[in-house]
Structures are given as C-alpha cells and as structure tokens.
Design a protein around this nucleic acid. Structure first.
Length: 499
RNA sequence: GGCGCAUUCGUCUAGCGGUCCAGGACGCCGCCCUCUCAAGGCGGAGAUCACGGGUUCAAAUCCCGUAUGCGCUACCA
C-alpha cells in the first residue's frame, strides 16, 4: 500500500475561512488516522490577488486550531518549496512536456478576441462558451516566430472532444463528464504563472499526494485534472469532494451573513476545541450519537466514507452550545492558563483607577482557581469569563435599578447589618462558614435563606445574578465583603432616601 | 443557457429493503431541582423521509423522471 499523503492547499486571501478550516481538518484527521503526512501548500499563483501577510495569518490560524502540518512553507519537507510562486520553472517544464506530446499548445489570442468570441457564441445561443482552438492550427514556424517576437501568449490544454471522462470520488462514488463540455483550459498564463489546474496537478503528483480532499466547488474542474494526469501518464490520486458549508439561507457560507474567518471566532472567545469539534460534525459523523469530541477522538473515529454528500448550514447556536460544553469539561488549570494568556495579550480593558483589588492577574492562582470553578457552569465564553472575573474584582460596583427594585426591601439594611457583623467576627472563613453563618441568621429572623441571599448578592456584586453566593463571598474575601455591604447600605439608602 | 452535485424535524444528522406511522443533538415549550443565572433531570411540540412514477410480498432506503437548491462555466482559486 502506498503511503498516505494529503494536503491542504489554500490560496492566501487574507484569513482562514471556516470552510477552509473544515477542509484542512478532514485532511489532517485522515492523515493522522492513517499514519500519513499532512502537508500545507500555498497556492499563490494569482499575482493580482496577492495580500500582504495573508500566508502568515493563515498559518497562525491553522496552528491555533491545532492543525500542525508535517511539511509546509515554514516546516520544511523534501518536496519543497511549498509556495507555488517559488516553483515557476517546474510548471514551465511540465507545460513544455505537454506541448511536446501534443496535449497542450501555445495560444496568442488577445483578451479582446476571446471576449468577442464569447459574445458571438452567446448570441448564437450555443450551449456553452468554449475556446475555438484557433491557435491549434498555427504551424510550428508561425508559433516559433510569434514566440521570438515576444507576443503575449498562454499555454492551453488540448482537449479531445467526445470522450467520456470517468473518475471515482470517495464521497460521491462515480462521476462522469463528456470531454466536449471541457474547455481548452489555460495552463500557463501570459505572466508566466500557472493556473490552479496545472500547478495543482503537477504539485500533487510531485509531492506524491495520495488523496485529494477538497471542497465540492472543485468537482466540476476535476475532469480537467484527470485529463492532465492522463496526459502526463501519471497515476491519479483518489478524490474526495467535501460538501459545502452554507449560510442559514442555504447559499454558500459568506462574509455578508456572519463571521467566516476562524480568527473572528477565536477573538470572540470560542475555544479551538469547540470550533474544531463543531466544524468536524458539519458533514461527518461516526454513525453513533456522540457529539462531544476532542481531537484525539476525532482522529480515532474519522473516515472519509462517513462524510455526507450535501451541504450543511453553519448553525451558530449549536456552536455556542458546544463551546459551553467544552468549557465546562475543561480542566481548571488549563482555563487558568488560557485566561491569563487572553488577558495578557488582548486589549482587554483593565480599569486603571479600579477601586478594588486591581487586575485579577494580581490574585494568587489558588484564588483564581476558585473563581474558575465558581464560574464554569454559567459562563460559556472565554471573553465572558474574563469580563465577569474582572467585574467582581476591579470594577466599581454599580447597582442596577432593576436589581435594586427586585431585591432591596425596607428591612434589608437591618438584615445586612446583622450579616455584616456576623461575617466580620469570622476568622478566615471558608465557603461553608459563610453558609452556616447566613443560615443561622435566617433562622434567627425566621425567614428563608433566599430572603437574605438575594439582597446580599445585590449588595456585594450589584447584580441579581452571578456565581454561587458562598463561592462569591469566599472569593471576595471577608474584608471586601464587609466593605461592600457597608457601601451598599450607604449608597442605596442615600440614593433612594426613603429607607 | 450548458454541465455537474445534492434533497430525512427550523438546523446538524441516524437510517444503507422489513426492527421506522422515522431515532439522537441544537434550538423552542413545560415541569422538577435550586440562593440567582446557568448546569442537571424529566416530559412535550416539531419530518405526509422534495414531488411523481416504477421494481418488490415489502421502499426514507433500489431505478427513472420532474421540481427545487447549490457549485462550476475566467489568463480566480
């Protein structure tokens, strides 16, 4: 059996599209599962679309998602370079070979002639616009002469009409085309750069790619590629054309209808594990009910045979759910590292005149770990996590009108004072100590614990929702709790004046 | 227009001739738990399996048409 070698071959458009992420992921999973190699190749043959920094961006996003490649522009490999713009001579050589064999030919037609040809064919209502092989009839000497005098030219594939082109696709099984529907595709552009079709086939062969796993948008041009493999006398790789990712309205996933760049999701606080998990499930499943996967499990279970045929809508709600699910199951220590890194290298606002303990980065780890386990259940995003943590530590407590109305009763100040005294007398209290203390007072006052907890939450956090009450008290610490109760009584009574 | 690919709850999907008057998940609704929000538990609504013909004792599952959607149709990938 030949070695499994697959590649992700994006053109650098500026960012990694989530559809591209899925394509890369399937390639990666397939390679890892089969002990193969996963290769990154940059298809930068369109000089007009060159974007500064696009390659670096792409690589960054890929690595963030955990898709490490075995060979690539910055990873080395025996088949390099892995940027097509650096392999121009290779394509030139192979184009020459095709010309010599009669499978390709020079074409000197001007864009203007091609344009009018198309218009003419349009007018005649021909089923499709195709190049008319005009330059194929040029004699050898004519071609020589034009070449000598530097007339702009391209190299075209010489397609023989009326032939059946059949190939197998792992996902779609057998696909057939009639070569009469295949145009004499340009192989080398007039600027000397190859088109996708040539570069792709040549590189896939030279790099010994065994499986071409790519988006469905390439299915229609596969006959051209097949023709090229045959013309060179090369063995065809196995093809697998993946279903497309769709907008909610079922059109191809696009920027207009939401975020498409993986960096957008990363910046919003989505976990890479969640994004990867989610995107893996868009068009593939193991055949059981399992939906929560980590990368290793995906590798273990993945198979191309179980990839679906039809497009899948990118459903943000399900992504949100998976993200929360991953966050909940994540180890506290790892979240801690993540939060610190996020805070350190993000633009997250740390209020300079924070009236309290300062940035949560100043807190000891064991405290932060407490925060994390207290927050884990209710916070689903890394960003939200930070905001919430930061809020409890540094933001001046703002009393929301709504919460005050809901939780501040006439007898609240008295009750809070009782709590305050009781808490103040505690020595280095634990969560349980707070709970027992509060329970005792509730009993004395002959009221339910909830009657105390809600006003206390308001006093201490300014909000009516948050982490578990006793977690919060413990995290804030006795002194802070006492101080906040005092502030609350003072502020809310003053503000309202009526109590 | 031509060529190609697809079509099961709103969405992601299971299903590869009988176990399906179609199962799971997200979302939605209700109840329970509860110090809030979540989480969790339980239950519910939600798909004439795009439509029409076949084949078969039997079809979501096989075949053929139609419709719809999407992709390609560039010296873009």
């Amino acid at each position: 059996m030949t070695d499994i070698r697959v590649r992700f071959a994006p053109s650098p458009t500026g960012y990694l599209h989530v559809g591209g992420l899925r394509t890369a992921l399937y390639n990666y999973l397939f390679a890892k599962k089969n002990n193969g190699k996963f290769i990154l190749r940059i298809e930068d043959t369109d000089r007009n679309r060159y974007v500064e920094g696009a390659v670096e961006n792409l690589i960054k996003a890929l690595k963030w998602a955990g898709l490490e490649y075995d060979e690539g522009p910055d990873a080395g490999g025996d088949f390099g370079p892995y940027m097509q713009s650096q392999r121009l001579e290779i394509y030139k050589k192979h184009a020459d070979e095709l010309i010599a064999k009669g499978h390709a030919y020079y074409c000197f037609c001007t864009p203007e002639r091609l344009q009018s040809l198309r218009e003419e064919q349009e007018k005649q209502k021909l089923p499709q616009a195709k190049y008319d092989k005009h330059c194929l009839s040029l004699s050898k000497s004519e071609v020589e002469k034009k070449l000598q005098s530097d007339i702009p030219h391209v190299v075209r594939l010489n397609v023989q009409p009326n032939q059946r082109i059949v190939f197998d696709d792992i996902i779609r099984e057998r696909v057939e085309f009639d070569s009469s529907n295949v145009d004499d595709q340009v192989l080398i552009k007039s600027d000397g750069y190859p088109t996708y079709h040539l570069a792709n086939v040549v590189d896939d062969h030279l790099m010994q790619i065994s499986h071409v796993i790519r988006g469905e948008e390439w299915l229609s041009s596969t006959p051209k590629h097949v023709l090229l493999y045959d013309a060179f006398g090369w063995k065809r790789p196995k093809f697998a054309h993946l279903p497309l990712l769709l907008n909610p309205d079922k059109s191809k996933l696009s920027k207009r209808q939401g975020d498409v760049a993986v960096e957008d999701y990363r910046d919003k606080g989505f976990l890479k594990d969640a994004l990867v998990n989610f995107v893996a499930l868009l068009g593939w499943n193991a055949g059981d009910d399992k939906e929560f996967y980590c990368m290793n499990e995906l590798i273990e279970k993945f198979s191309l045979e179980r990839v679906n045929k039809s497009g899948a809508v990118f459903d943000l709600q399900k992504l949100n759910w998976l993200n929360a699910e991953h966050l909940r199951k994540m180890d506290d220590q790892i979240i801690l590292q993540l939060l610190k890194r996020e805070i350190l290298n993000s633009e997250f606002p740390v209020s300079p005149d924070a009236s309290r303990s300062g940035s949560i980065l100043n807190l000891p780890d064991n405290y932060l770990l407490q925060v994390i386990s207290a927050m884990k259940e209710r916070v689903s995003f890394v960003k939200e996590f930070i905001t919430t943590c930061q809020y409890f530590y540094t933001a001046p407590v703002e009393y929301e009108q709504k919460s005050v109305e809901k939780n501040w009763k006439t007898d609240t100040p008295e009750q809070l004072k009782k709590l305050r005294e009781a808490f103040a007398s505690l020595n280095n209290p634990s969560k349980e100590d707070y709970e027992h203390t509060l329970a005792k007072i509730a009993e004395e006052l002959n009221i339910g614990k909830g009657k105390l907890i809600h006003p206390l939450r308001l006093a201490v956090s300014g909000q009516s929702t948050g982490p578990g009450m006793f977690d919060l008290l413990f995290i804030l610490g006795k002194d802070e709790v006492v101080k906040r109760i005092d502030t609350a009584i003072e502020k809310i009574v003053l503000r309202d004046g009526s109590f």
